[in-house]
Write a protein that binds this DNA or RNA. Structure first.
Lengths: 233, 233
DNA sequence: AAGTGGTCTAGACCACCTT
DNA sequence: AGGTGGTCTAGACCACTTG
């Protein structure tokens, strides 16, 4: 016999993916049961399962108990993004990181902020505006609200030194996250602090986090013109 | 004894995640070996492994062979986005989908397009501009280049009826994908076709795909003002 | 009711990395 | 060199979902 090494689940995944690209298994087709594929390829069923799991995650196939595995007819483009701490992001670009606190006030959160958290009741929160710089040039302007009843310690943090971004990441792990992207025209503060003409198109990254049911923070990060966010891979 | 059911890997994941949020395992700490956790919780090592895998994917912990598992000091915010076929996206919003071909020409790809593919040689490509509508209102304007030597069949497709987006998704699976987001001010065609004043901020979703080493297509999708892209979960 | 994916166990060995 | 995560096998049982 040919003394080949054992199949790894990535081998199995690649084999099946190739067959899908091949049209051996065409869109909409039902694939053989995991067990049959295992027998055919000569590996354990769980190895096929692992491979399939990965293909399902990528959006190439769809699995249902009893229904079996099908090649998706409308493959979904699925992309994953890392949104690091801003300091880290700047430093990884090889730039010098800078930070400025713009304002810090305790006030009732407006309806739009309450809505992001899904809150009904008026709530007093810490409102922080800050600017992150790369090589002394504006990089990201952030407008953040922090629920100070959930994170009372934040009230004692010197935000002129340490950014709320960084403090929260290091001290307030979250259990739920909402992220969304959109574009907006610079105006007022965002234009001023990013040193760009009013009307410039800005990418906004809006993040809201909770710990269990409790709101932690919500932030709109306005990236300076030219900013791009690229997916992993 | 209490007749509890067996631990699932999600239970184990949740237990460990709670401990991390608890600071039982603080940022930077080394976690016990998988096997010790398995013994402590009373499950198989592989079950702990599965849980850890998930936590590592989410960016909460970092694993290294021999080095063990550590709680990340700078947890990364990681978000996954689905970018469906535009027709599907519109229909899932409950709107009526519409499509218009704007132009279709065979021409040499400009340097910017070649750069996206990482190509050096001048290449003749099919250049397609099209508009997707939701309830008869402009939704996404797409500016697309297709390598017609890799996908010659596209030359015979009636793009006035079927969008290139859809045809490609159904007929040209890709093996590599690049996705990036940025914001841009509407001008010229993008403003005109999206029926928005020049200068409006637009979210651009740029996607480039390859099959193995061969370029398939690259597209800049300009979303109408107000468009938001939300992460899964 | 029955088929198929989902997961757990126990044991073994491999592969990578740090010391 | 040795420790730790990574994965494979074989078998069993569970859970969902469809016919």
């Amino acid at each position: 016999m040919t003394g080949q090494t054992r199949l790894s689940w990535t081998d199995v995944r690649d084999t099946i993916r190739t067959r899908i690209l091949n049209r051996t298994y065409a869109p909409g087709d039902k694939l053989p049961r995991d067990e049959d594929i295992a027998i055919e390829l000569g590996c354990a069923r769980i190895t096929v399962h692992r491979a399939m799991q990965d293909l399902a995650l990528t959006g190439l196939v769809e699995r249902k108990r009893k229904g079996g595995t099908h090649v998706r007819t409308d493959p979904v483009t699925r992309a994953t993004f890392d949104i690091p701490i801003t300091r880290r992001e700047v430093e990884q670009r090889g730039s010098k990181y800078g930070y400025q606190l713009i304002s810090r006030t305790l006030q009732d959160a407006p309806a739009s902020v309450l809505a992001r958290f899904g809150l009904q009741q008026p709530t007093r929160m810490l409102h922080v505006k800050a600017l992150h710089l790369a090589d002394n040039r504006p990089y990201i302007f952030e407008d953040r609200w922090i629920d100070s009843s959930v994170s009372p310690e934040i009230l004692d943090v010197d935000l002129t030194t340490e950014s709320a971004n960084e403090w929260l990441v290091h001290n307030k792990p979250y259990s739920r996250l909402d992220v969304r992207f959109y574009a907006i025209n610079a105006k007022g503060e965002s234009a001023q602090h990013l040193a760009t003409p009013a009307g410039s198109a800005l990418l906004v990254i809006e993040r809201t986090t909770w710990i269990e049911q409790d709101p932690i923070t919500t932030v709109q990060a306005y990236a300076a013109p030219g900013y791009q966010l690229a997916a992993l891979n």
